[in-house]
Simulated assay, not measured.
Amino acid sequence: MNTSTNQAKVNMYKKKSENVKLWLKRAGAGAFLFFLLKGIVWLIVFALAAKSCS
């Protein structure tokens, strides 16, 4: 194998790992927003239920 082939493989590996990191960051942000909104909805549901009981 020559140097240019090795360099191409290294560049491909770096690009793939960067894509994985980017995807994980986006997935983490999406999960955070999902659970944040889910929690807010549940707080509203419980507040409305408590208000209707009194």
Rank of each mutant, 00 (worst) to 15 (best):
residue 32 F to T: 05
residue 33 L to H: 03
residue 43 L to T: 09
residue 48 L to E: 05
residue 27 A to R: 07
residue 28 G to S: 03
residue 6 N to I: 13
residue 13 Y to Q: 11
residue 14 K to F: 09
residue 26 R to S: 13
residue 49 A to C: 07
residue 37 L to R: 00
residue 12 M to Y: 06
residue 39 G to E: 08
residue 21 K to W: 04
residue 8 A to Q: 15
residue 23 W to K: 09
residue 37 L to N: 06
residue 42 W to S: 04
residue 29 A to K: 08
residue 22 L to Q: 09
residue 21 K to G: 14
residue 32 F to S: 02
residue 38 K to T: 10
residue 16 K to S: 13
residue 41 V to M: 10
residue 49 A to M: 10
residue 17 S to F: 04
residue 38 K to Q: 08
residue 14 K to A: 08
residue 28 G to E: 05
residue 48 L to H: 03
residue 9 K to G: 01
residue 37 L to G: 15
residue 54 S to K: 11
residue 39 G to I: 01
residue 8 A to M: 13
residue 46 F to M: 12
residue 12 M to N: 11
residue 16 K to G: 06
residue 34 F to Q: 02
residue 9 K to N: 14
residue 23 W to N: 12
residue 7 Q to K: 08
residue 43 L to S: 12
residue 5 T to E: 14
residue 2 N to T: 10
residue 16 K to V: 01
residue 20 V to R: 12
residue 45 V to K: 12
residue 3 T to L: 12
residue 37 L to V: 07
residue 2 N to G: 14
residue 6 N to E: 15
residue 42 W to T: 11
residue 45 V to N: 08
residue 51 K to E: 02
residue 8 A to C: 02
residue 47 A to F: 10
residue 8 A to F: 13
residue 4 S to G: 02
residue 4 S to M: 12
residue 45 V to H: 11
residue 53 C to D: 04
